[in-house]
């Protein structure tokens, strides 16, 4: 993907997930209050994942490294900015998931788990401030939805690229021939 395509994806995902500048400010405002609990959220997330038989083999030998990466990502969720660099980073995360051959449902499932954990945390932080709780939950939902969209886009592209490689290998077609064939049938 070039910068123009990343920019398109950025705008598309922001529009779809409803991320606004106010939400970005809200998330940044939450950073100091959420940061002390990030490791706890991460630990809790991986504890649930380890109980899922299909997920466990992908985690077992690299749990510490994964937790470290996860904590760094959580920090970025509450610090932003949610611009091209963030989109590129999340797109790469999707790529890594594909290369590790993680089933596609892992991303949506994981995001659901993280969303629940963060809602619980925000519920504790803002137990006496319902308006702030609603505002925070909305911002978290939007940014996690935004992130998931970007990662899934990458997943889709990477999967298609992998499938194409297989197809070319099986048929013996060169990449150039395939491109010429596709170009000949471009509307």
């Amino acid at each position: 993907m070039d910068d123009r395509e990343y920019e398109q994806l950025l705008q598309y995902a922001k529009q779809f997930s409803g991320v606004t500048e106010d939400m970005e400010n809200t998330l940044q405002g939450l950073y100091e209050r959420v940061k002390p609990h990030m490791a706890e959220v991460t630990d809790s997330f991986y504890t649930v994942l380890l109980d899922i038989p299909k997920a466990e083999p992908f985690l077992i030998d690299r749990l510490d490294a994964l937790k470290e990466t996860h904590n760094r990502w959580m920090e970025s969720v509450f610090s932003g900015p949610f611009e091209l660099d963030y989109v590129k980073a999340m797109y790469r995360v999707g790529d890594v998931h594909v290369k590790a051959e993680l089933p596609v449902e892992f991303m949506a499932g994981s995001m659901a788990l993280i969303t629940t954990r963060l809602h619980q945390l925000l519920g504790t932080i803002f137990k006496d401030e319902p308006e702030k709780l609603i505002e925070s939950v909305s911002a978290v939902n939007s940014i996690l939805g935004f992130t998931l969209m970007v990662m899934q886009q990458s997943y889709e592209s990477s999967r298609l690229a992998e499938e194409l490689e297989k197809f070319l290998k099986i048929t013996g077609m060169s990449r150039t021939l395939f491109d010429n064939l596709a170009s000949a049938y471009k509307e």
Binding site: G172, M173, L177, N180, L181
Partner: peptide
């Protein structure tokens, strides 16, 4: 072999690019 036409004597209703790419693809397969 990449599917590009080098020379052709085709009827006007046939698209050169398609004939070229499709023929090379079929031969590869």
């Amino acid at each position: 072999t990449d599917g590009l036409i080098m020379a052709s004597l085709l009827p006007a209703n046939l698209d050169e690019d398609r004939v070229g790419a499709m023929s090379a693809a079929m031969l590869s397969l």
